[in-house]
Amino acid sequence: MMQAASSTAALPVLEVRDLSKRFGGLLALSDVNLNIHQGEVVALIGPNGAGKTTLFNCITSIYTPSEGQVVLRRPQGEECILNTHKPHEVTRLGMARTFQNIRLFQGMTVLENVMIARHCRTRAGVFGALLRPAWVRREERAIEEKSYTLLQYMGLESLYAEEARNLSYGQQRRLEIARALATEPFLLLLDEPAAGMNPQETLELKEMVLDIRKAFNLSVLLIEHDMSMVMSLSDRIYVMEYGCNIASGTPDEVRHNKQVIKAYLGEDDA
């Protein structure tokens, strides 16, 4: 399956080349390389503090990389180097993300949370808002409907008028994914989507990730600690430790990689 995924697209949709990130004297990432091909689910694993979230933040331009490049290839064919982009431009180019510690707009309703994400695909400005010509009213209607459809897809439609803070943990996670999907991405970045979920919820999440990949024609990059989920879900896995790539490959290859075992379990004499 993995070969099939990587051979369909000649060039990766996301390419991280020799990326380094320094915070003062601290080298948080050093020469990290990573590729994602169209339709792949790629996982990023590693012990706490390995630099996974830093890498995410560099990819989504929340941080500016110190060295190296992040290259995004849009389905339309253009190639963008993201280093100098702002986070909102990256989203507009077609990369959406969720956050490790859920970052919903807590005081707003579930529907509004998704509606906000339609911002980058709509265009009404100040005068549109004040004068409300017909096209703005149509646009607003379309935003509502599209958002509601996404809520239906995530099974949250009955909660649409609820404030986001009143949702259960699992629902908040799903809402965050719905919100990310509303920006119409072709690449979805999930930062520990299964954190704090019980095994049943994790299983459902895994099904959902596979589902949305197919339904929305996505490539997915995820950070995850839950090994059973990572192993069964991903086409390829990258392993990080101390800001470096230490291994990459199919789940099977990674499972048997000595360095990975060392990183996770410590030195093994046997």
């Binding site: 989203t91 509004e112 980058c120």
Partner: peptide
């Protein structure tokens, strides 16, 4: 409203 609620998530929404 998004800016008020969460600046980072607001940017991530484009």
């Amino acid at each position: 409203a998004a800016l008020r609620e969460d600046e980072i998530a607001c940017e991530a929404m484009g």
